[in-house]
Design a protein around this nucleic acid. Sequence first.
RNA 1: GGGCGGUUAGCUCAGUUGGUAGAGCGUUUCUUUGACGUAGAAAAGGUCACAGGUUCGAAUCCUGUACCGCCCACCA
Length: 722
Amino acid sequence: MNKFLTAYQPQDEEGLIYERWEKSGFFNPDKLPGSRPETYTIIMPPPNANGSLHAGHALFITLEDIMIRFERMRGKRALWVPGTDHAGFETQVVYERKLEKEGRSRFGLDPKTLYDEIHNFTLENKKNMESQVRSLGASCDWSRSRFTLDPDIVAEVQKTFIKMFRDGLIYRGQRTINWCPKHQTSLSDVETENVEEKTPFYYLKYGPFEIGTVRPETKFADKYVLIHPDDERYQEYKHGQKIEAEWINGPVTATVIKDTAVDPSFGTGVMTITPWHSAVDFEIAKRHQLNIEQIIDWRGKLLPIAGEFAGINIKDARPKIVEKLKEKGLLARVDENYANVVKRCYKCNAMIEPQVKDQWFVKMAPLAKLALGTVDEGKIRFVPDNYEKVFRYWMKNALDWNISRQIVWGIPIPAWLCDECHEGAIGDSDVAPKCGKCGATMRRDTDTFDTWFSSGQWPLLVLNYPDGEDYKTYYPTTVMETGYDLIFRWVPRMVIFGLYLAKQIPFHTVYLHGIVNDAQGKKMSKSKGNVTNPLELTAKYGTDALRIGLVIGNPPAADLALREDKIKGYKHFANKIWNATRFVLENIKDADLVVVPDLLPEHQKYLKQLDEVVNEVTKQLENFRFDLAADHLYHYFWHTFADVIIEETKVIFKSEMEVGGNLATKKSAQWLLYTILVTTLKLLHPFMPFITETIWEYLPPSPQKNGDLLMIEPWPKTDKKV
RNA sequence: GGGCGGUUAGCUCAGUUGGUAGAGCGUUUCUUUGACGUAGAAAAGGUCACAGGUUCGAAUCCUGUACCGCCCACCA
């Protein structure tokens, strides 16, 4: 009781409370009391172990914890599995930045050393992040926690690769890939960003034609002139016809190619192609079986074909080449204000250079069809539902997925490669096989999988697919809660792998949250220096204040401006709960909490109103509107319970003391206050677990308070149907 | 080029099936009352972007416009 003489001190309570929860064992659904036939499962999106928790983590942990605590209290076997992602490329980028700062480079390290260093770095982060997740109150089952590089998970991921290869869903192919010249690896399409830039658009004289380009530095080997077959202006030129042209480094002979890929209304309607460094051009070249030739090396420098420009970085080369073209009279004109879309690496912002490379690809069309089918059947619900459209769009337009990465930090691809004929073979034996096509001795593939290849299988992997008990019990999971920015990167891949491997959807509902921005609604970024560490906020205002502050006013998929004064406001709310509790405790010391007294009519009315609150909050929680549920509770507690009901009972308690009062009235008031407090604490618990659990310990027992741990207390019920 | 979201109080944002506008913070005044000054009571402050339409009634539904933001995109 003494504790209630001061204001609520979250820092004194939270650590102890979490310890009690964890020691209780109830984070593990198999240890929950009661029969609990119904399961409720959330797989936590595994945080990337390459930094510390940010505000986005705090949001998703809060949301998922709300769902889990709610369903646990409702009597379900609520399982929330935490985990950690090695986050292949992302982590390697972070680590390379660290190396750079230390004046070192990945390219000076042998792969084994680099791997071990990143491994240690990751484990360190993992430990740190797990303690941060705990501090946010996450009631997840740590006994089931998994890491994407656990040996059995690695083995399972490799098995999937082999299975897909055998099923004809993975092939080795030479295709245009996104090459990051800084990090020396290929990237999938979702790992690049399209950025619009103003670029000069050059019109160059090419024999009898004028061609347009934004990249004169790629044009050295151009020897095909493309024209639309129906373009009236160029009817005199026939398909296959040779023309002579004076070009950058001397005369060339070019061949006219007629292809409908050319847009007659763009530029002059004539273009030359650079198949090695453009996906479109590559497709055209393949169609007509044209020669393809590399112009730019893997470091972004011009190859010997560029003559005097060989060895120059393409960025520096462009003005020099333009200058030469101008001198030779080949530069017709320049459009200075051309808006061009270029791809950049989503992590380091380097210009992506399209290159042709042998890689492993996942054939997406049949898999995407599977995924679309289940969505058509309404088997997966999206919250908010407009994201179903986004999902569909992406699935309908899915390109084959390059899963090879030229980095060490990841799961090794169990394959052998033939350098002679570009053939690839699967297998993880130690003996190098002979190439089945040309007979040459093959070498081990040193590439690793795209992270999304493993995290796409995450719901299966953490539940120990295919033989684990958890897989049998908890798959398919109930809700996948993640950021809408992962609607492309992650969600479709999980659906695909779930359907392909388990023949079942991985989750019934996809709940998407928005992005946590700074107080002005601007994106947080280290370079802007506007990053808020959630743990600084919890230290100042308490975890509960941060949690409910993140939830209220934040509907599904809405971006959120994180404002410290808002969190501070909800710290006041926590204190309000604390003080109202003190009032109730002081006034029910002599109350009979077992036998229901005769209740005053107005008190019966208040209890009815309380039922409505229970119904409303329950309905909103079921409906994934955590913001409305929390807001409703907030208002009820403060402006009805505290401002009206408590104020009214003050008169009763006061008069009872003064004139001997009316004992029946007092008893009615005591019952009312106790009931409302017990009920609202239960309702508030998913949102503000620490303060509610702390108070629970000090409430006198009664039939309404079954046990010592609020966490597993039954959710309030009403007579009415919800 | 395609798609999505937004435009509501000084700031950041709620407002779920249409029924006289809400929160947090900020501002003003009063109150040191026996839960709470991290508070209470009261108050100021909004033509709900704009223009049409449906309706007895629209912030809410429909159409269009403007501006902002985000996502997707192989016109060189």
